[in-house]
Amino acid sequence: MATHDTTEATDSTTGPSKEVVTWKTKLRYFLNSDFVRSSPYWGIPFVLMGIAVYGGIGYNLAISFTDYAGIGRPEFSNLSLEMYRTALADGSFRQAAFQNFVLLVGFTSVSLALGLFLAVLLDYGIRYKETIQTIYLLPMALSFVVTAQVWLWMYSPGNGVLNVFVTALGFGSIDWLGNPRIALAAVIFALVWQFSGYAMVVFLAGLQSLPSDQFEAAKVDGASTAKTYIRIIIPQLKQASVGAAVVLMLFALKAFDFLYAITGDYRPPNGTDILATLMVREAFQYGQWAYGAAIATMLLLLSLSVIAPYLVYQYRQGAL
């Protein structure tokens, strides 16, 4: 208060403060501030995560530009896009990418549809709802590995449950996973069995967050139940659908565990090879590290192309 400068005092709105504040005071304030004091809380986990995720991605990218294979160390002196060119020209890569796409779209859309159907089924005033929901969701608690074993047995060409039904109906026994033309559909079916409960839970939460008077208003207006759901309720589940779809797609991208566990080998059933299995096989079975890294980078780009619009959408919704 002591140093009072008239010109400063009159310049009131934007004028500098009259108090002489030393840099020491400011530094002490800064060091005491919430920003500084809270930074270790997020900083330590962030660094750990950052090294693992982004360090890993960066290193993987670097390796993908080399020709690193076999035993030894990667040689970073001669970088090129060679591995990407090889991959894009390779028939098995293209096939894996195509099958990956089919798996992604097929699995996600079927799971969403079934999940929505189950959610509506359970939303409409039934008894033992909690118990039924728990059972529908039960497969989610299993690992990919266990699901794979269960469905391997369900699909077994010998005495598997599906073939018990099929032969009971008078058809010949089918080798579900052995036939390359239906193996991918069989895999998608098994994954839908495991994850449609997840979509159901998300939709149920969305349904329950809607005010119930909408439903009542529609009833008063004389709309049938089916019509109410289709015209009024379901369109409002957009946010839930987007969220569920993104998470389901990521499950699909991680389907490696399932495919590996079916055969217990790097090579999944014929017709079900996807980028994830191809990448692991190239890198860890054949030691083609650089080639595997290149495939992994493309898999990452595929994931990012799914997530980026989702994040933008979330940001626009103010949900971040």
Partner: peptide, 13 residues
Amino acid sequence: IGIFVPYQAVLVP
């Protein structure tokens, strides 16, 4: 983004 990164992308490193 860390949630959504496929593990394959960091497996070799």
